[in-house]
Design a protein around this nucleic acid. Sequence first.
DNA 1: TTTAATGT
Length: 321
Amino acid sequence: MSKSVLLKYISIGSVAACGYLAGIQTERYKNVLPQNNLNLKNMPGLPIFGTVSAATSFSPVPVPDQSLASATNALELKSTGNRIAQIMKYGFPGLDNVRSFSDYVLSYDRRNRVAHWVFEHLTKDSVKYNEAVDRSKCDFKPDESIHKYFRSENSDYKKSGYDRGHLAAAGNHKFHQQHVEETFYLSNMAPQVGRGFNRDAWNKLEKHVRNLTKIYANVYCCTGPLYLPKKENDGKNYVKYEVIGANHVAVPTHFFKVVVGELSNGSLEMEAYVMPNQVINDNIPLTSFQVPPDSVERAAGLLFFDNLSRSKISKINGKKN
DNA sequence: TTTAATGT
């Protein structure tokens, strides 16, 4: 059985993706979320435009023509290397330091010591209970494939007050023990508020995404950090975030998830979420965190599902497109 | 059910 040999490191020159345009949202966000009625005005710095992305698509990995209706043949695909093409079927959000694992793909931000994005392809089979897979056997481990200058270490998180929060969730990779173990590289972690966020509201969003596999034959999920500007007392916008540990690992202000579900008849539906990296009241419904996908693209400097015309998506955030 | 830190 192939092991780390499978871990290909695709070194692609960094692409300066500067899609962020400031100055649209002017309302200042509060440090503590309101108890109810959370809306876009509480996501300051998330630029809301009326348009959708129209950039050209590009994929460094050839995507096979045949329809990949289900991943029941995941092992076979893994051995052929087609798994990456399957995960990235709808395009790469960006091309900075792309690293592929057996069941997810990651783009690494060396400056912040946190990924730009991770990409996963979920099916019923990848999220269903599997007695052969045991999360408790997994250890958080530094990703040695990343230069030591840019790598995060367990010591950076220790006593920081933050969880080592998975971007590609461990619970999404239950098909094989190796899959879940590979989600424990620190390159897949970000400093997350533990109680009230990672273990609560964010966990609830991750479960929601897993549950989408009951509706859709294929679920494609992109997750990453955001560093959103906030208006200070002088009336100007600043991006401010904490860094932790000797390696100055960035603490994102927010996290995003953009998900596309593919029904067995081929029709496609999208959901996009942004959550602040804060204690979030349990009563706030997930739908309160839904945002227009292009606002996340502009804030993150990424283009999601760029191989897919937005006009082919029948629903966005539950509304007809 | 899934998250994860802390302290012995």
